[in-house]
Each structure stands twice: as C-alpha cells, then as structure tokens.
Nucleic acid binder design. Structure first.
Length: 595
RNA sequence: GGGCGCGUAGCUCAGCUGGCAGAGCAGCGGACUCUUAAUCCGCCGGUCGAAGGUUCGAACCCUUCCGCGCUCACCA
C-alpha cells in the first residue's frame, strides 16, 4: 500500500515570489517596485478610536517653537482626524472605515437613483435573447477592418460586467468584460436619446449591462459596439479592485479569489488550465479502458498513506470517522472485485501543517490496473503527463524557471543509487549499514544533510536523496530501485530482494507521481500492518492501524496489480509554470480571519 | 516552533540623517461626442499595524505584541 505523491508537500522550486513578482510586474508596468503590500483592513477592524488620547489637535502637541508657525497649511492642519464610525454597519466581517463606507454609500445611492429616477430594475430576472457571446464576437471579427465590418453590417448584442468607463459628457466608452474576454461599447447620447443616456450615466464599473448595436472600428482600430440599445442587468454594490495596479495583495487574492479571477489574467488562466488538465487526464484514462469510481471520503479506518487524519463523527450512528488520507485501500477492493482498471480523482485530507508546501486538502489521482506492474505504471504515467500537456497547452514543452522542459515520453529510468552516487559520491549499494553511511556522508560533505539526525539507514538515504538529488531532477525522470527498507509497502524485486518495485516520477525538482507493483500477499500485508501498529504503540502518531476488513478482502485474492498516485496540484504547477501550489488552487487553506 | 523581511489613505506606493504626513488610482462636484491607466478643474479621504520606551520632537530609533510573506525544521 504505497503512500502516494503528496501535492501538499511540494519541494518548491525555490523562487518564492516568482508568481507574485510576475503579477506585480504586469500590474504595475515598468515602474513597479518590489514590495509586499500590507493589509490594512484587519487593523481597521480592530481599531477602537479615542481621538482625544491618540490624536490630539496639533495645537496641543509639544513641538519646537521655531517650527510651529510659518509653514502650516491651514486646510490640512485644522482637519479633524477621521476614524471608524462605530455606527456604521460591519460588512464582510470587519468594521468599515469612513472612507470605504462613503464609497459603498455612493454606490447604493447611485443604484437607488437608477431605480427610482430612471425606472431601471437593479436585478432583473431576464436577459434579452438571443445574446451573442462577447468572446465569440471579439474573436470572430478580430481580423476584420472597418470596411469589412461595414460591408457585413456586423451587429452584436452582448452582455458583461463593466470593467472601465471613459466618459465624455455626451458619449462614453465602456469596456465590457465577460468570461475573461473584453469588448468596447461606444455609448452616445445622440444615438440612444437623452433619457436612456441619463440612465446610462448611473451605471458604474462593476455593474452588469447589455448592449446591442453595430460593430465598427474606432480611429485607434479597436473593435467596438456602437450601442443602439442598452440595458441594465445587475448591480454591484462594491467596487472592483483598483484598475491600474489591480489586486496584488497575496492574501486578498486568495481570500477573495473572485476578484483575483476578475482582474488577474494569470489567475483565470491557471484555473482554466487546471480544469482542462483534469479533463484531459480523465479522457486519457477513459480511452485506455479505465473506469472512474468514487470511494468513501468518510472512512471508519484510514489508511494507504503515512499521515495524520482529520477526525469527525457521525451523529446518528455515534460513529467516529476519518477523512481519507488516500483512496488506496478502497480502490484495491475494487480490483479484488474484478473492476480491473479503476481510477479516482478526488481530495485527500491530511491533518498537517499549512505552508507553501502543505495544504490540508489536496487533489490526487490514483490509478490501479490489474495484470500489470510498475513498469506499466511508468508507461502510463509518462503518457498521461505528456498527453495532458498536449491537450492543455498544445505541446509537451513547458517553461519552468526560465528554462524549457520537454515532457515527451519516454522518460529516462534511473536507479536511485546511481543518482546518489553521481551527485554525492556516496555509494549506498556498498554502504548498507547506518554508521558507515553516516561516516560516508560526513566524508562526502552532503549539503543540508545532518547524518546524526537520521535514525535509520533508510531515513539517511532518503535525506541524501531529498537534499542532493531531488531538487536537480528538472527534466522528467523515473527514479527506481528503492531500497526495500525505505519502501516497506511495495512488492519486493524478485531477483534483488533488497529492492522494491517502486518508482517516483520527478519533474521540475518535484515529486509528481509515486507507484508500486502492489503488495498482494495478504500474510505479508498483515505483517506490514502489524509493524505499523507497533510503531503506533511506540508513539508514531501517523502509523496506521490494522485494517482487518481490507486484509479479509486481500485474502480473497488480488491479481498482480500496478498502482500509481499522482499529485494533481503538482502537475498543474508544472503545466502552468506556477511556483506555488496555492496558485493553482482556487481556495487554498488560510488561517482564520478572526482570532 | 527558529531565522529573515514587511505593515503609511479604500487600492498601489513615496516619505532622505528623527523636524509640515504625500502622489497616483478610487470616491464626490464640474467640463468634455474616437477614449482605452481618457484628459482637465475643484474637493473629500490618515490612530503611519498595536502598546510601551528614548527624545524638545517619532511614520522614522528601541522593546514587546499582532498580522502577512519568505525560509529552515516538521510533514517519508
């Protein structure tokens, strides 16, 4: 029962702020200075003003006499300090400062005028039909010049959110945004009539509207709908993020991802790519005859990985349940039951720390194929990754940290011992005891590895590999021939019993997949479970318990089976070039807002 | 948990060696029928994260705390 690749535990590709820096550079243009913005809303929420104590009038301040008189600006100097008005309603869980309240009040007031003076419905139930897709309109006429548009008498009726308004008194240009596409609408009073135009002036950025009219090119060549009809679709009571710099604050981007998606093209692009990637994985597996299944998230006993589970409780059964840490044991039951090719794409939950490398819930693909072994899983893995890349991005070449990576199969197969020897000079095949290996590591001076910190030979091998080898595995590679001691859950290599039939796939310095020839000897499996149980008794909180029900299933016989787990988030990082797992996660886990 | 960094207007950020708290955007009022960060005129907007300390004087120096980020450890 191999524990699977854990996308929550990324071996991050170093550069902390690459994504953020890119965002900032894009948002701020050439003038952008690198600086992490702060978050003021929090403080606003916590403030309890006492102006007399904290903000005395300037006249009452102690100040040097020679500075006092001549340079004060009367207007500023006499301004009374503003502060949060405790009477204002809390919104979104925090107290509003007066200025933000003013902005919101202005939008409310404008909405009321739109409803009462212009007679518009703020949230109408119906949208005029037929409606042209804004994206399709802009794509269809993208290459047509002014004459071509006129000749075709091109027309469109589009709807979207107002992203920007450039107003000229009796005319205005409105940038509509929908589904990630943008299209300009030219709103002119002489075309619409003064009554409609007066109502239009109460529209504002963030609102949803529709417009119908002929397509033309402006002097600057932009495809534009010259509105002959216009209407209101939905009010936005809150403003969009600042239009030039956009939304930069990392925490706000995650907490209010909808704003991030609206204004940061990367956010949208990565979300779309991840979705397409998952669709591609499904399609590729389906084409190979695999059956997608769903197994319990709520499990009476957890297993299949080495991790701390979340615990929950079923009320009416008064039953303790665990959120799954892997799908493994259930999928193998299905193999036993004759579903010879199954996979599941879903969420695992591991009650571990949250950081750039950890998210308590993360997506996993697990695949099991009867009458197969780990070599079949290699072929499957490289074809899934390359196939997904082709279907998502059009090719098997991706960029990472400024260099290209080719995902096209076949990927090299490299024994772990060989890689370690190449990088460090340490030969784990020759040095098979803990103490000699420690000496060897000290002699070789492996950076980042403290030989004394690893309690066993296997742990030290793992430390060497993680530190010295893994970060350098940029191009796709299968690492195989894992020491049996390092992989107690996989089938032994028959001709070399100190090794197991296991591989891990690495790309961009990250573990992408982990696979085994699955252990199907129930007696051996029982022995492994009991080792785990013993470890648990001696204090290993993550060792998992004996699963009698699973053992009973195994005793009914499981065919030789290859199994593979792949971190969906990790693969998404590779295909999008994202530096952080949470960039490809729509709603990453965050610390709660109110302590 | 350890280390490093950051926190100034609703947003993005300046603020020099301790001496007047600023800009742009957003908001409000006005002008403007080819703009696209529209432009122009005027106005509004601040507990400089919090508390304490040093100082004649603190956004700036010191201490503690809070929040966020990075990193190490942990997490095979």
């Amino acid at each position: 029962m191999p524990e699977r690749a854990q996308p929550a535990q990324e071996q991050g590709a170093g550069d902390e702020g690459a994504a953020r820096a890119a965002l900032r550079a894009r948002a701020a243009g050439a003038r952008g200075r690198g600086r992490t913005p702060g978050r003021r809303e929090e403080e606003d929420r916590l403030r309890q003003p006492d102006p007399l104590v904290h903000h005395p009038p300037l006249a009452a301040r102690q100040g040097p006499p020679h500075q006092a008189g001549d340079r004060q600006r009367p207007g500023r100097a006499r301004r009374r300090p503003r502060r949060a008005d405790p009477r204002l309603p809390a919104a979104g869980g925090r107290r509003l400062v007066a200025n933000e309240a003013e902005i919101l009040a202005a939008r409310r007031k404008r909405a009321e005028r739109l409803r009462d003076e212009a007679g518009a419905e703020l949230f109408p139930a119906r949208v005029p039909r037929p409606l042209d897709s804004l994206r399709e309109v802009s794509e269809r006429w993208a290459e047509s010049d002014a004459e071509a548009l006129e000749e075709a008498r091109a027309e469109a009726r589009v709807a979207g959110r107002i992203a920007a308004v450039r107003s000229f008194g009796k005319a205005a240009f409105v940038t509509l945004q929908a589904d990630g596409a943008r299209l300009q609408v030219w709103v002119k009073r002489d075309r619409l009539g003064s009554e409609v135009y007066r109502a239009f002036r109460l529209y504002e950025a963030g609102d949803f509207i529709w417009a119908r009219g002929g397509l033309l090119r402006t002097r600057s060549g932009e495809l534009t709908v010259e509105a002959e009809e216009i209407g209101f679709l939905a009010k936005s009571y809150r403003p969009l993020p600042e239009k030039f710099h956009g939304l930069v604050d990392v925490e706000t981007r995650y907490r209010q991802r909808y704003l991030d998606l609206l204004v940061n093209p990367e956010a949208r692009d990565w979300a779309v790519k991840r979705s397409r990637m998952v669709s591609a994985l499904r399609a590729l597996l389906d084409e190979r005859g695999f059956l997608e299944v769903e197994t319990p998230v709520l499990q009476p006993l957890y297993g299949g990985a080495h991790a701390t589970p979340f615990v929950t409780r079923h009320k009416t059964y008064d039953q303790q349940l665990y959120l799954r840490i892997s799908f493994e044991l259930y999928l193998k039951r299905l193999i036993i039951g004759g579903l010879d090719r199954v996979y599941e794409i879903g969420r695992d939950f591991r009650n571990e720390g949250v950081s750039r490398k950890h998210n308590p819930e993360f997506s996993m693909l697990e695949v099991y194929q009867a009458y197969a072994d780990y070599t079949d899983m290699m072929e499957l893995t490289e074809n899934l990754v390359a196939g997904a890349a082709e279907r998502v991005g059009g090719g098997t070449r991706v960029e990472r940290d400024g260099r290209g990576i080719d995902l096209a199969p076949p990927w090299p197969r490299r024994p772990m011992a060989e890689l370690i020897r190449e990088r460090t000079g340490v030969d784990i095949e020759q040095v098979t005891e803990l103490e000699p290996l420690r000496d060897e590591v000290r002699r070789a001076g492996v950076a980042g590895v403290d030989p004394a910190a690893s309690p066993t030979w296997a742990a030290l091998v793992d430390a060497i590999f993680s530190q010295a080898v893994e970060p350098e595995l940029i191009d796709p590679v299968f690492v195989l021939d894992y020491p049996a001691a390092l992989s107690p859950l996989a089938k032994r290599d028959e001709s070399r019993p100190h090794l197991v039939e296991r591989f891990e796939a690495f790309i961009g310095g990250m573990e992408i997949a982990n696979a085994f020839s699955e252990l199907n000897d129930p007696d051996d499996q029982r022995a492994r479970f009991e080792e785990q149980a013993a470890a648990a008794r001696s204090g290993d909180a993550e060792a998992h318990p004996v699963d009698e029900d699973f053992l009973r299933a195994l005793e009914h016989g499981m065919p030789p089976t290859g199994g593979m787990g792949m971190g969906v988030g990790r693969l998404a990082m590779i295909l999008t070039g994202a530096a952080h797992l949470r960039e490809v996660k729509l709603f990453p886990h965050l610390r709660p807002r109110d302590a």
